[in-house]
Nucleic acid binder design. Structure first.
Lengths: 340, 340
DNA sequence: TTGTATGCGTTATCAA
DNA sequence: TTGATAACGCATACAA
């Protein structure tokens, strides 16, 4: 790699000491304006760029935040990342991004990789398999600022950003009931996830608040294999005990439901009403348009990055205290839950 | 940040010289097996992790690849990134990711940021505004390995990965014609982009090959503002001279078309047939299901990363020669282009 | 206001 | 087979 010139070379060119040049470039108060001008213009002329590794080594910080997500092709995570990036770029931070593909092994590997301090902080959403949190604990113990969004790890005492999972699911379920559903299934992923539990609790409470009995077969544990999910849901829909409403707690399971329905002669919303957590911009274009619980993804991203950067730039004034910050979701009613 | 112990401290603990420990950890042939064992086990015990910045500084490489995309909420780019990450992770590379939001200013800023060597190589797709390539030229002149995918910069003599834009669009247009379209519009973004030009050329050649005359009003230049595009397309659809077929060269413009159609009393595919470049997994769930030209996104990602890593690990054996590598797209016919 | 010297944590060269 | 030393490029404490 033909890297650029160093501070020392730049200083030699200017007939100044490297320290002077360094200070000039960092706009130190001890350097005269005249010198600063000279230094800056020469730096530009010679195309000088400070070596980030030397700086990181010296200052023990990398101006880098690592973001770990379980899935990239997911409108929620993509929006969160856009939010994080927006704020990070503003503050001169770089983003190291890792996709665990919902694979715990991979998550552990990535987390271990970050143990070396490559990133100054971490924002993450765990995989749906993540139950044990010792790998995350290790990171946290090292003093590396870490926060969670959406898929949080409750055991780690830090700040977490989520949406009102319980309430949204409760309301979503109530909406299905209002629209005439008598038997509702709940599609979920990763039963150990705290948000899954909350969503399921919201669902169950909505059901029992009607005086209905909760049917275990209506809690459908899905996996990450699209085709497997489609089959699972298809079976559910073909069973004599089939639901007339589905609340999908994960976007991709809503899509799987559409596919499953296509394989039957059921029609949404006439034979089956569907509501799902989803941030897909195409929700309104689906056939039929999907009623969604939309999470404030961009805001969550902003807040994560803002908090992390505050913590990094003013470590003594801010702390990632052990709290859960809830930002509400919004339900948008569309055809998939229309009254017949 | 409570960072871990250093090599020196580890060496002290072991009563060995730092250089010995370093060599042991790097599995040097000059170190005895016994010492290696001791060192490794002590390193594990004390939770030693090499400081990546010290190493980068010393070795003048960062094991990091920067990926620059114009848009994150886009199934094509998301898939390419997944592909790049897959290969990068395999080889121990990290990914620094930047979204330009189709903004040239931002692209220039990011590119300048990378001038300092923070990444060992770059894989990028330019914004639809990018016409002048001097900022990219600067990067290339520095000797930083850079390759392009999809939205390439023709002036930079390096390897570029694209799909068969001309042929796909030609075929797509022919398909519309076969399905009975008599007047076809072409939706495009960024008229300076080489792939846009290729796609437009494919479209035009398909039209003229029918002996039809090309109508300038059927080439619709869109922008990045969703609502503006929807209005533009709506106007097109309401004009007396309205098309009965649309080929959208960009996924988001297909979605905009769906929205625009909803505002009219036209129906796809009866009054308007639609085909679009898109990698959206929900294409088949849209109303109606969208006929797509699907790019080999994952493969493009793999190939980008493989080539870059080859170049980085064996700089003398591989070169990013100035060539365009074409990987064909696949047309999937769905309802949106059905015969009446 | 500027210069000198040191060290951040590695790895590589040279010596033992 | 191991150890001492220097250097990567920068920023800071201290000196002038």
């Amino acid at each position: 790699m033909a890297s650029g010139i160093s501070l020392k070379e730049l200083a030699a060119e200017l007939k100044l000491a490297p320290s002077t040049v360094s200070r000039a470039l960092n706009d130190s108060y001890e350097i005269s304006e005249a010198t600063k001008k000279k230094v800056i213009s020469m730096a530009e002329k010679l195309n000088y760029h400070a070596n980030p590794f030397a700086r990181s080594l010296r200052e023990n910080k990398s101006k880098t935040i690592a973001v770990i997500i379980p899935e990239r092709i997911n409108s929620f995570f993509a929006q969160v990342m856009d939010g994080i990036e927006e704020v990070a770029q503003e503050h001169g931070y770089h983003l190291l991004i890792y996709n665990t593909h919902e694979d715990l092994e991979r998550e552990m590997k990535i987390v271990n990789l970050l143990l070396n301090g490559r990133a100054d902080a971490i924002a993450m959403s765990v995989t749906s398999q993540t139950k044990d949190s010792s790998h995350l604990q290790k990171l946290h113990n090292r003093g590396l600022p870490i926060i969670f969004f959406d898929r949080v790890s409750p055991e780690i005492p830090t700040t977490k950003f989520i949406t009102n999972d319980y309430e949204s699911t409760f309301e979503g379920t109530k909406h299905l009931i209002q629209q005439g559903c008598k038997k509702i299934a709940f599609l979920t992923l990763g039963k150990d996830l705290s948000i899954s539990k909350e969503r399921q609790r919201g669902f169950q409470d909505a059901i029992t608040s009607e005086g209905w009995e909760l049917q275990p077969s209506m809690i459908v544990q899905c996996c990450h294999e699209e085709e497997t999910n489609v089959k699972l849901i298809e079976e559910l829909l073909l069973s004599p005990n089939r639901p007339d409403g589905i609340l999908s707690s994960v976007e991709k399971l809503a899509f799987a439901t559409y596919h499953a329905v296509k394989r039957t002669d059921l029609r949404i919303p006439y034979d089956l009403k569907l509501i799902s957590f989803s941030n897909a911009s195409t929700a309104s274009l689906l056939n039929p348009a999907l009623t969604t619980i939309t999470q404030p993804a961009l805001t969550i991203g902003y807040e994560c990055a803002k908090l992390l950067i505050k913590k990094l730039t003013k470590p003594n004034h801010y702390d990632l205290i052990d709290q859960v910050i809830t930002i509400p979701s919004k339900i948008t009613i569309r055809e998939s839950t229309c009254q017949d």
